[in-house]
Design a protein around this nucleic acid. Structure first.
Length: 479
RNA sequence: GCUCCUGUGGUGUAGUCAGGCCCAUCAUCUCGGCCUUUCGAGCCGAGGACCCGGAUUCGAAUUCCGGCGGGAGCACCA
């Protein structure tokens, strides 16, 4: 007999114990969580919320976190994604305790499908897809639905061997919510699977595979976005049909991430069209791109924990995420002079001058950059700063000397800082270095020699912002 | 169209279940000041919110009713 309609997912109980951070889960034993992406590409900022929340709860309850790769649609599997996703999780500090791959588990789904069929809780359907949907819309059973379990099981074995058809989980056709009436559990996909070749032709759909796996892997808490609210109710039908105890379902609101392309399939299109240099193109919000620009995983994780698990939809604030990252990066970042759109001026000084500039203004132990500026040397200054200067104006070359703009040259005007005089970064020696911003724009500039030793590091270009140095270019992180 | 979720300053969040301790918390943000040889950091100060309307109550962000707004699902995708 078919089960009763499951109750809608219970709202999360607020059991905040007073301390900051996430409210503890209701749990009377071990806590098992899972992060379950489809391997269609590497992870992006949107995915990181699920990773962060599941990981935070694993830590809070000393539980277990499973990475489950949901690759039951051969058409959208990227073979490279399995490793990329694992690497992204590791970078975030959320290494899974266990990894399972759905395409390795087809026999398990078949077993539970047979059980559903034998209980009269599912049926094999050969109707035309359009007609079947239309009948559902009208709350009418299709002709395949009523036949006996024994006949259904025979149909199922036939379907495994060949032919067309689907396996459908019975729900309540009269459910007022059209999204909840009978859903497909298995369907035929003849395309070869990147990992399994043509070993299988009958593949489970998302809802069926998720229900089976969450139960069989012992998941106690299903933590995911609100967009799965209906899926939860569909999956609950499987639990009821098979007499399984349900995990606790928790849904957090949708996140909208402004000014950002997150859809993996769209990114992939841009990639094949040559629009992006790779998954880590700094214009993207993949974790690979953020990592490359110098984002610290902890900033991302902390951001999501602070956002919590409310069901209200939220908007990500880049400003706030940047602030979280800045507090992490600021104490460690060495300071460097980088001169954007440089203008060269001869510096007239009575003798060679020596620059002594600390790598960090608040941390002497990080050392300093020293450089001698020869007599009659040319220094580069930011064009924007030079333009603001009137003839005869006083200017301080940071960590070097004061000078005055006279006749297109800089005249030395004392060594000690003078209050109220604008202070600018400059370069005498130095190498050309372009700054690439997340909007894709490139700015030419010159960086001081000390940069050569700092490739790969997050540094601060004084008066410009934090950047990560690569060979031949700098990637803008944020102010 | 049907079904469901949700609404506290610019952003996120605490408080909402058990109405008064909330002229509302914290962070970020914005503005001003101090400090600083960076427009970074730090310190000090200020600014800014309970979607709207009724009802219940001595008292409502918190309860009830009605609006309005935002979002999602209705795939042989995940």
């Amino acid at each position: 007999m078919a089960a009763q309609a499951p109750a809608p997912p219970k709202p999360r109980q607020a059991t905040d114990s007073g301390h900051r951070g996430l409210p503890p889960l209701e749990a009377d034993g071990a806590v098992v969580l899972r992060f379950a992406p489809g391997p269609s590409g590497p992870l992006h900022l949107g995915h990181s919320r699920a990773v962060a929340l599941n990981h935070a709860y694993r830590e809070l309850h000393d539980g277990k976190l499973i990475l489950r790769l949901e690759d039951t649609n051969p058409a959208v599997v990227d073979p490279a994604a399995y490793d990329l996703i694992a690497a992204d999780m590791e970078w975030l500090g959320a290494t899974p305790d266990e990894t399972v791959v759905q395409s390795d588990r087809l026999e398990i789904y078949y077993g539970d499908a047979r059980e559903l069929l034998s209980r009269g809780a599912a049926y094999v359907c050969h109707c035309d897809a359009e007609e079947w949907r239309e009948l559902k819309r009208q709350s009418v059973a299709c002709p395949c639905r009523p036949s006996e379990p024994a006949a259904q099981l025979t149909e199922f074995e036939a379907l495994l061997a060949g032919g067309d058809g689907i396996v459908v989980v019975k729900t309540d056709l009269a459910d007022p919510n059209p999204a909840l009436r009978d859903f497909v559990a298995l369907r035929v996909a003849e395309a070869p699977h990147p990992r399994q070749g043509d070993a299988w032709r009958l593949w489970p759909t998302y809802n069926f595979a998720v229900a089976v796996d969450d139960y069989r892997l012992g998941v106690t808490h299903v933590l995911r976005g609100k967009d799965h609210l209906n899926n939860t109710q569909r999956q609950q039908w499987v639990y009821r049909h098979l007499g399984w105890d349900e995990p606790q379902f928790i849904h957090y609101g949708l996140v909208s991430i402004p000014d950002t392309l997150l859809k993996t399939s769209t990114i992939r299109e841009g990639l094949t069209a040559g629009e992006y240099s790779g998954w880590d193109d700094p214009r993207l919000a993949t974790l690979a791109a953020l990592r490359r620009r110098g984002y610290q995983p902890q900033a991302i994780m902390d951001y999501w924990v602070a956002a919590g698990v409310k069901e209200a939809d939220i908007t990500l604030s880049w400003q706030n995420l940047e602030a979280a990252n800045r507090t992490l990066v600021e104490p460690e970042a060495k300071r460097l002079f980088w001169v954007p759109e440089p203008v060269e001026l001869v510096l007239d000084a009575p003798q060679p001058l020596e620059k002594r500039a600390p790598f960090h203004p608040d941390r002497d132990e990080m050392g300093e950059r020293r450089e001698t500026v020869a007599l009659g040397a040319t220094v580069s200054l930011p064009a924007a700063d030079v333009q603001k200067l009137a003839e005869g104006d006083l200017l301080r070359l940071k960590n070097l000397c004061n000078c005055r703009l006279c006749d297109g040259r800089l005249e030395h005007a004392g060594d000690n800082p003078v209050r109220g005089v604008p202070i600018v970064q400059w370069c005498a020696a130095g190498a050309p270095l372009q700054l690439l911003r997340p909007d894709g724009s490139l700015t030419d500039g010159i960086v001081e020699p000390a940069a050569a030793e700092l490739e790969g590091e997050v540094v601060q270009f004084e008066r410009v912002g934090f950047v990560r140095l690569e060979r031949g270019q700098a990637l803008f992180l944020h102010r």
